[in-house]
Amino acid sequence: MSKRSEKTIVDIAAELNLSVSTVSRALHDNPNISARTKDKVKKMARKLGYRPNALAAGLRNNKSKTIGLIIPRISMFFPATITTIMQNKLQEHGYNLIICQSNDSYEQEVALVNTLYSARVDGLAVSTTLYTSDFSHFDIFKEQHIPLVFFDRVPLEKNAKVIKGDDFLGGFTATEHLILKGCKDIVHISGPLSCSLYIERVAGHKKALQQYKLPFKKTRMFYQELTRDNALKACKQIFAQKPYPDGIFAANDTTALTILEYCRGINVRVPEDLKIIGYSNDPRSEISTPSITSIDQSPEMMGERVAAALIELLKAPAAPQKQSPEIIPIRLIERASSEGKNVVKAAAKKPAKK
């Protein structure tokens, strides 16, 4: 079957016996064109199936009016919420969002960066893969002064705009909460330490143990992709022999919910025998039984700030330089999985990283 040829403004002009420039102005609602002519042109455009060529227009004015977004997975609550907020905010400023997911593949991330650059996006926002350690594929955006914003999963050292959660404080707060509830033997299930998020959350976890004079035990640490299958594998190790831990800090809510389900199957009561805290405040954590205590990462605020940063850079691109990261606050959402009176007095001072 032959491909249907694209109709152009030349075809519309020929059908109506008008000049190409008149058709172009009518399609763009030029005030010098009469309402009657505009109506005729638009009706003929619909009849012929005319589609404006945004790419060609972008080449003419050097603006595509599109922003590229690369996230690990659109199916996860946190990046999905950020994506929705970003799209809404950018559309208010006349920009469309091209959404890409790396599926936590470094090779796919590199390919997507090159594709979006070739597509002439006006800016790029990225939450990197778990395993990205070489960020040189982003240099082309910096070299061409195209706005680039890293968020959530970010490079530890990069001269770019960075917007991230307070993961150190999040790790500290989660562990401190379990300690205040009386937990003395705490397991932490972390993501891989190739990712900035988990480096900082583990550092916060260690700081809380140190501040409350509890030992850090390597045998109570797990570093893995935070999937349901990996959570089940960790549970089999954790509960293979007694004594069982009295608290678990899971670095995402999928893992926390999986632990809760596993405990139900081996008659470990939550929160009486084991207290659990997750991370991200996924809506599922609120409707489980018992509901899951979690760390909220303010995804709406992060989405708004990433969109705002892109708009600011589009108006006045900043020269590449070392910038302090913008920190989005976290907050503890206490629910039934860690229920109980505080039996330890809270620390008086906010923790410092060093």
Rank of each mutant, 00 (worst) to 15 (best):
G204E: 03
T8P: 14
K142A: 15
I189Y: 00
Q323Y: 09
P147Q: 08
N159F: 09
P320S: 07
G303L: 01
S118T: 14
A54V: 11
A352W: 14
N342E: 08
P52T: 03
K7F: 09
Q321W: 10
Y279S: 04
L27A: 06
T293G: 01
R46K: 15
V23H: 07
E92K: 10
I327R: 01
R36G: 12
I330A: 02
E326P: 02
A80H: 10
N114V: 12
Y212N: 06
L314P: 00
V149L: 09
M44V: 05
K158H: 12
N61F: 12
L90E: 04
R120A: 11
D152M: 05
K65D: 13
R120M: 10
M1Y: 13
K40M: 05
T219G: 13
A56N: 06
A336I: 13
L18W: 04
F222E: 02
F77Q: 04
P325A: 01
E300N: 08
P317D: 06
V20P: 15
N17F: 10
K322P: 14
L209T: 03
A160I: 02
V126D: 00
K43W: 07
R60E: 13
Y279M: 08
I328D: 00
K42V: 07
L18P: 04
S337V: 11
Q297E: 11
R228Q: 12
N32F: 14
A336W: 07
Q241V: 07
L260D: 08
A57V: 11
V23T: 03
R335C: 02
D246K: 02
K242Y: 03
M301K: 04
D296L: 09
K213N: 15
N230L: 05
A352P: 05
I71M: 01
V343P: 06
T129F: 01
K236H: 07
A251M: 12
Y279G: 02
H93T: 04
P325M: 02
L314Q: 05
Q101C: 13
N88K: 11
D122I: 00
I71Y: 00
S280D: 14
S196N: 07
S194F: 03
V343H: 05
D11E: 04
C195W: 00
A35G: 09
P271L: 07
T129Y: 02
Y131P: 12
K161D: 00
K233M: 12
Y106P: 13
I330G: 00
P147S: 11
A57T: 09
K3I: 15
S34A: 07
I99T: 09
Q87C: 06
I248A: 03
V149G: 02
K89W: 10
L274N: 03
T8A: 06
V344P: 06
E272A: 11
A316H: 13
F135M: 05
L314S: 02
C100L: 09
K213E: 13
A231N: 01
F78I: 07
G278M: 08
R264E: 14
P299T: 04
T175W: 10
S118F: 14
H145P: 04
E286N: 08
T175A: 11
